[in-house]
Write a protein that binds this DNA or RNA. Structure first.
Lengths: 341, 341
DNA sequence: CTGAAAGCGCTAACAA
DNA sequence: TTGTTAGCGCTTTCAG
């Protein structure tokens, strides 16, 4: 491509300059609202821009400045991600805020190995860094503003916003224990994720604090899927010494547990108390509304965009590294009651 | 910026070339898998790439080639868009397919006036072109591959995929009429959208075909919000000659109508048959499950990505312009019954 | 206040 | 096969 064969349809800064009879530098200045342009020239440029319907190429701008106004959300790809309450909440939060800040949002789902090219975006929000930690490190190495959400990364000097999952789990156990329960079980999420791991930790430590027995058969690990939740519930509710309460790591799994209980003739909450996690609206609709933990997913997402835009403006070096845990809230509804004597 | 002050952290094709002791062209060739590179050189380049952990700048590539692998979804911005079943379905469909095709997805919510810079993206999917028709025309003028969904645009030579809303509405009226209803009302969506307008048209024409009276007070226009649905239902159900059936332009509005009916002591479906539109899962959960129209939103979204990628590969000129209507399906559940005598 | 020109990192036509 | 070089469209320094 020595030179475009067919005359370019796209009009560039040069065309504007020619029409306005100024140099491209002046056009550039006008575009970038530099004050040092004589009013007369500014006007002419503006007219030319108008007349030619000129829009600067973001690409060229980015290439020249190294800045970009697109924020990438990098999130591990998993089956049905676009149907998961969690991912949707993140997208909602990030989407609304990027839109408000006039930033564009680039959605990138990572497979285990797909190398996302961080060059070219203004900043990156990594959700749930797991297998793709390499990408995070690369972004940091390249100096691309980054922030991680839903994962408190201690080892790296990177901003992060996570949910206080340990505290949340503890408050659930406390609540259940306060209702007189001692046989409290826990169905975990995928403990490869920090969230699930922390919920488990919180559960265990709260049980210990309350001097309650932590039984192996009262802890079943899953991958967050409803299928595994069902299996877990089936085996757990078949135990000779059934738990009287169960803390489930997500609402959608909790719903599954409730329906298994139902199939086994157990009444909720009379025979089994159930607590979920997420405050997913679908927990509202069943015959028994679900007691759950509300986590500020949307807020976390929004905060991340705010933080990121600060970094994008201040520069990676100047912006202080902040790491925070966001508190959760227990939402008591109908799926728990005092343990029957 | 005559030249970077601090030595650039980012390594470029030049660094690779230097290390591999070849020209940048050769490096470029290797990157682009050109066959005409001697094996020995290819290997050296690859090693250098590996060693330097080099990743080409997408930006520069795009600038040089004019091609890009990001697809933008341009969708009108409205309150709560990230909570709307419709928008979410589109995002699901487009998101899964772009991911599968290794394309990145850029989400752009348009306000009335925000000028989206189409330059720099590989293709654009316009959803519901309304106020932003200018953007569509601009994209076409610039030769950026575009496709519009959920709107059958006749006047422009652009690909589009829409839902057969007219047919859908007709089948609803036919169904209701088949159940013996003659007093069939319609609560529309925002008729500024083609979907809502077509549903209204379909309703009217089916009523006429069946020789049923089309009454003005049986047609109430809304903006798709639940609030307006409530108002509509309230006034409509207060009519002396109440309709015995109502076709509502969205499930979420239909739900609202059902609850208004309920408040007024009307039983569904005994006293009032209700049909929604969307097949939104939340229509399943109430005391009476909602009869509705399923529209292939996800398919439409996915198809659009496929089509778009064809255009992106073939070029705007070579690719044929296709315009299609996708069929819908009536999903009969519990909210309708034979009209009571 | 303005313009010339160097560069951003890469591709591709052309010549060797 | 390979290297040279002219762009892609814009920003920014530097010298007026």
């Amino acid at each position: 491509m020595r030179r475009r064969k067919e005359p370019s349809k796209t009009i560039s800064i040069t065309d504007v300059a020619r029409l306005a009879k100024v140099s491209i530098s002046t056009v550039s200045r006008v575009i970038n609202k530099s004050p040092s342009v004589k009013e007369r020239n500014r006007k002419r440029v503006l007219e030319a821009v108008e007349q030619l319907n000129f829009q600067p190429s973001v690409l060229a701008q980015r290439l020249a400045t190294g800045k970009s106004s697109v924020v990438a959300l990098v999130i591990p790809r998993y089956e049905g991600i676009f149907y998961s309450f969690y991912a949707l909440e993140l997208i909602r939060g990030i989407g609304t805020l990027t839109a408000a800040l006039k930033l564009d949002l680039l959605l990138h789902l990572t497979d285990t190995h797909s190398a996302f090219n961080v060059r070219g975006v203004g900043g990156v929000i990594f959700a749930d860094v797991i297998a793709n930690r390499g990408q995070l490190e690369e972004a940091m190495r390249l100096g691309v503003p980054s922030i991680v959400i839903n994962n408190y990364v201690e080892e790296l000097p990177v901003n992060c916003i996570a949910i206080d999952n340990r505290g949340a789990a503890e408050s659930v156990v406390d609540y259940l224990s306060g209702l007189g329960h001692t046989r409290i079980a826990h169905i975990t999420g995928d403990v490869i994720t920090q969230a699930a791991a922390h919920r488990l930790e919180g559960y265990v430590s709260a049980m210990r604090k309350r001097k309650l027995v932590v039984r192996e058969d009262y802890i079943i690990k899953t991958d967050y899927s409803r299928g595994q939740a069902r299996q877990a519930a089936e085996s757990m509710l078949s135990l000779t010494e059934r738990p009287t309460a169960v803390f489930v790591a997500s609402d959608s799994m909790a719903l599954e547990v409730m329906s298994v209980a139902n199939e086994k003739g157990l009444k909720i909450p009379q025979d089994l108390s159930v607590v979920g996690f997420d405050d997913n609206p679908s927990g509202l609709y069943g015959p028994v509304s679900l007691t759950t933990v509300r986590q500020p997913l949307v807020k976390m997402a929004q905060d991340s965009v705010k933080e990121l835009s600060v970094i994008m403006n201040l520069g990676v070096k100047k912006a202080p590294v902040k790491k925070v845990y966001l508190p959760t809230e227990l939402v008591v509804r109908e799926s728990c009651q005092h343990v029957s004597p």
